[in-house]
């Protein structure tokens, strides 16, 4: 007889060994995010023990060497630059996705999608460098010094634009063709069809795309570090230099010691909290989309 029976008998064993092994790997992958949280907390613990959280927004200034830990200006800079970038990138990204779906001839749409994908793949340090050497001097001519909140917003916009464009693109692809046929049968113009049927149908997907883009904008470090000027202050205009939370960590981590270092980990925790909040919102919108 041709069959070797030992091979057959070990069936459930090979599969269950494999399953156990895979479970272990999956547990490890899932544990990373918990490890991150644990280590952020344990590293910030020294300063959290004797500095109440309220002082991180009520202290006179950010001078960790003197025990002053006000991160509010940097928090403001992070929120302002992200908000600006999201406000600019949202219409651009939606327009770009609409262009691919309803306006461009097929060949052009393919080319456009490829461009977006390439833009998404350009490293943030290259965006930052380009902003520093090309964009900042241009804006500086308008109003010195050039490295400013505005420059940061423009560079961030370019960086999160692909995120918006790609997620909206996916959301548009999910709009049932029957809706479009129905709209076309009513003799609507292209724009009324998009405005009246397509965008409402895709709104959950669009909303979660915007949330994800905001997550990227808040977390972005290198580009904003290179073009925003890094002065710790509340900006009085778009042309003022600002320092974001992320930039602050990148700048000071290299030499921070003791409580200063722990305070930087606290800003890290604050960043993570913001991001988690946004991810939660995105998740909410995604589930909303699943119900529609």
């Amino acid at each position: 007889m041709i069959w070797s029976w030992h091979n057959i008998l070990s069936l459930s064993r090979t599969d269950s060994i494999l399953a156990a092994l895979l479970r272990l790997c999956a547990l490890l992958s899932a544990a990373i995010v918990i490890l991150i949280l644990l280590f952020l907390i344990s590293e910030s613990w020294p300063v959290l023990q004797h500095v109440p959280l309220s002082r991180f927004i009520s202290d006179a200034s950010w001078h960790p060497a003197q025990g002053l830990y006000n991160i509010a200006p940097m928090l403001g800079a992070t929120l302002l630059s992200s908000l600006g970038a999201v406000l600019l990138a949202t219409p651009l990204g939606i327009a770009s996705a609409l262009f691919c779906h309803y306006y461009a001839p097929t060949a052009l749409a393919i080319w456009h999608r490829r461009t977006i994908a390439l833009l998404a793949g350009i490293p943030s340090v290259v965006y930052g460098f380009w902003g520093l050497t090309t964009l900042a001097p241009l804006i500086g001519r308008l109003h010195p010094p050039g490295v400013s909140l505005l420059t940061g917003i423009v560079v961030l916009t370019m960086m999160i634009l692909p995120t918006v464009a790609l997620t909206v693109d996916a959301a548009l692809a999910g709009v049932p063709a029957a809706y479009l046929r129905g709209a076309a049968a009513l003799g609507l113009t292209r724009w009324s069809m998009i405005n009246g049927v397509v965008l409402p149908a895709a709104r959950s997907g669009i909303a979660s795309g915007i949330m994800l883009a905001a997550v990227r904008a808040i977390g972005e470090t290198m580009a904003i570090l290179m073009v925003a000027g890094n002065v710790v202050q509340y900006p009085d205009s778009l042309f003022a230099s600002v320092r974001t939370l992320t930039a602050n960590i990148a700048l000071e981590m290299a030499y921070a010691m003791g409580d200063h270092r722990a305070a930087l980990f606290v800003t890290g925790l604050a960043l993570l909290a913001m991001v988690l909040l946004l991810v939660g919102f995105a998740e909410f919108f995604k589930q909303d989309a699943a119900h529609v």
């Binding site: 041709i2 069959w3 070797s4 029976w5 030992h6 091979n7 057959i8």
Partner: peptide
């Protein structure tokens, strides 16, 4: 998968 190994077979 069921244990036949010889190519000729």
């Amino acid at each position: 998968e069921h244990g036949m190994r010889r190519q000729a077979e």
